[in-house]
Structures are given as C-alpha cells and as structure tokens.
Amino acid sequence: MNNLIWMLAIIAIVGGCTNKQKKVVEEEMTLSGLKKSNFQAIINGDSTNLYVLKNANGMEVCITNFGGRIVSVMVPDKDGEMKDVVLGFDSILGYTSVDNNFGATIGRYGNRIANGKITVAGVEYQLPKNNYGHTLHGGPNGFDKKVFKANQPDSQTVVLTCVSPDGEAGFPGNLNVKVTMKLTQDNAIDISYEAETDKETVVNLTNHSYFNLSGDPNNTILNELLTINADAYTPIDSTFMTTGKIEKVDGTPMDFRTPTPIGARINDDFEQLKNGKGYDHNWVLNTNGDISQVAATVYDQTTGIRLDVFTTEPGLQVYTGNFLDGTITGKKGVTYMKHSAICLESQKYPDSPNKPKWPSPYLKPGEKYSSRCIYKFSVQ
C-alpha cells in the first residue's frame, strides 16, 4: 500500500512537471505561432531575438533585431478573427539561409542607385552592384543583414540602433541609425527613422514588409483594392532603373487614384508593366510630406482588413511580389508564389543621388535625417 502511495505521488510530481513544461512552451508561443527561442542566435558575434509588441485591442507585432524585420502582424478581420498579414519565416534560420528582405529595415539607401555610383562632396564612390548592374537596397550586405541593438522600453515599443561604419558597402561616413517601431492603440505600426553622420553621405531608409490582407499567402493580392494618392510616377527602363522622367498616371494602368483591384490591369500591354514585370515603381505622392494625409490604401474585401499608409517621404515604391516564384517556403510551411504580397515602401525617389532635381537624399554632419511611415490597420 505504501509503495502504491509513493508511486502515485511520483506520477503526480512528474505529471506536474510535464504540465509546467507544457505551460512554458505555450508561453513561448506568440499569437502568430512563433517561438522566441527560434529567433535566438549569435550572428557575427551579436545576439538576435524576437520582440513582441501588443496593444489593448489584442493586436500583436513581432520584430527581430536581425535586419530590423517585422516578422508577423496579427490584426482582427471583420469577424474579429486574428489574421497574420505579413510574409516571413518561423525562425531566424529562414532569414539567414535565404536571400530575402521580408519585413526588413532597408539601408543605407532603399531602392536602386544607377551603376552603383554616387558623388558626395565632389568625390565619386563605387558601391557594390547586386541588381541588373545597379545597387539595390544598400547592396548585397545592406541593413537587412545587420544585427541591430534592441531595447524594448514598454510593451508597445522597440528601439533598434546600429552604427554603419565609414566605407561600409562603399558609403562614406560613420552613420548612427535609430529606428523606433511603436504599436499604437489605434492599431498602427508607427516607424520613425533617425540618422546622423560625421561625413557627408546619402541616406534613404524604409521598411520592406510584404503584406497580404487576406491573412493567407496562398491567396494572391490581385483582388485587393489599391488606392495611391499620386498624380504621377517615375518610369523605369528594362533594368528597373528610373529614367529621370516624371510622368502622369492619367489614362494609364498606373492610375490608382480611385480604389482599383491590383490585378485589374497588371497584364496590360503597357511598356512600364513589362519593364517592371508587374508593378515595381515609385509613385510621386501628392501628400507633400504631410503625415496626416493618406498616401496609399490597400483593402481586402473578403476579410474587410484595410491598410492605410502615411509618410513624410515624397515617394512610395509599390511592388507586387513579381519575383516570388514558389522557391521560398515561409511561416506555417506556406510556399510564396507570384503576387502573394504587396510592398509599400516610403522613400526618396530611386537614384536620387544621380538626379539633382529630385528630393535630396544627402545628409551632412550636424544635420539629422528624419523620416516616418505609419502602417495603420482597420476594418472597413
């Protein structure tokens, strides 16, 4: 009898430990199904982690300091069901083993620089080329591969900082960068960028999240309604480089001044769509840097989820996932196919360092680079 009592006691203790272990595992899991431990690694001597932001409405945003990336965004649909509306990976390994910019903070210079050449203070610099003979998103080793120092002052904010040393990726100047991502109470991700340099340089920071408002990347974004507050855009050549012209959207498939399905004209016989393999263009915003004006809106009629974009920047690059081709498997084992997401990147116009009439990307010592972009979610 005593032995039986002892056996029952041991079973109870072991069962209790197992339940505690299960509880720990459950506590590790985010609302979007991520485990923090899967994002904890040492990369180039620096530690990576997953930072979870939550607001009173139950919205959740997960961010890793590897590349300053937004990993998941959980928002309610019209039925109150939580949906993850950005593409990404379940672990840090996905981000390091596959060349990608999912959710990344892009720098030093977002978008393309022609032939990888810039002239700063009378000196010409050659940057590494990584895209059709041009430098794209800071080159092959841009900020998307940098481990930022991270500080989470409260449950709704993460502050990411890094130093890009003079000569890194060919750019001049020691650049001190600060990116603050805040989840607001009205379901917006408010991103503020700041930078200072000790030598004149060029800066153009942005975020490269891939959005799919259906909450299921098995669906394309072609039926989602897109509105862009812009009367003009910057055409590109067959290497995706801006030509230097600014053209009106009126009467072309580039006109999204009223809500239009993304796929309605994406296959039209139009040179710009052929050059971009779809939409991969910068729109010249009408907002004049006014953060209170909507720059663009995406709306999914099935889920009712709406995304409004606000920015202080003069341009917005809209990219419709034209190069996703089924070779990348992301969160929950979903294969990312063509047009399974849309990117909305606030920015100076592409190749601005080589186009003096366009908004200047130059930053001098004593000045502060400042940029802001808000991704606000709601149900329509």
Score class of each variant (00 low, 15 high):
residue 177 V to S: 04
residue 302 T to Q: 15
residue 264 A to C: 03
residue 79 D to W: 07
residue 178 K to E: 15
residue 24 V to Y: 09
residue 150 A to V: 08
residue 239 T to Q: 13
residue 19 N to V: 07
residue 142 G to Q: 12
residue 130 N to G: 12
residue 344 L to Y: 05
residue 209 S to N: 12
residue 82 M to G: 01
residue 71 V to P: 00
residue 319 Y to A: 07
residue 234 T to E: 06
residue 287 T to P: 05
residue 37 S to C: 05
residue 157 T to D: 12
residue 72 S to C: 01
residue 47 S to H: 04
residue 116 G to H: 07
residue 39 F to Q: 14
residue 50 L to C: 11
residue 101 N to H: 05
residue 62 C to A: 11
residue 96 T to M: 10
residue 304 G to F: 02
residue 304 G to V: 01
residue 329 T to W: 02
residue 56 A to G: 08
residue 4 L to E: 08
residue 376 K to V: 15
residue 176 N to E: 13
residue 278 G to T: 02
residue 377 F to A: 10
residue 302 T to L: 09
residue 375 Y to V: 00
residue 203 V to H: 11
residue 108 R to T: 09
residue 223 N to W: 01
residue 377 F to L: 08
residue 154 D to L: 00
residue 363 L to W: 02
residue 242 T to E: 08
residue 313 E to H: 03
residue 275 N to E: 08
residue 160 L to Q: 09
residue 177 V to H: 05
residue 196 E to C: 02
residue 323 F to E: 10
residue 143 F to D: 13
residue 297 T to A: 14
residue 372 R to N: 13
residue 134 H to D: 14
residue 296 A to W: 06
residue 274 K to F: 12
residue 339 H to F: 12
residue 162 C to L: 11
residue 305 I to E: 09
residue 293 Q to S: 09
residue 378 S to L: 06
residue 234 T to I: 12
residue 32 S to V: 00
residue 365 P to M: 05
residue 191 I to K: 00
residue 360 S to E: 08
residue 242 T to S: 13
residue 172 P to S: 04
residue 127 L to K: 10
residue 226 L to V: 11
residue 69 R to C: 08
residue 311 T to S: 10
residue 223 N to L: 02
residue 122 G to C: 09
residue 278 G to S: 04
residue 245 K to E: 15
residue 265 R to M: 04
residue 341 A to D: 13
residue 330 G to T: 11
residue 6 W to K: 15
residue 151 N to H: 05
residue 147 V to P: 13
residue 267 N to R: 13
residue 46 D to A: 11
residue 319 Y to L: 07
residue 373 C to S: 14
residue 275 N to S: 04
residue 332 K to M: 01
residue 229 N to F: 08
residue 375 Y to F: 15
residue 49 N to W: 02
residue 55 N to S: 04
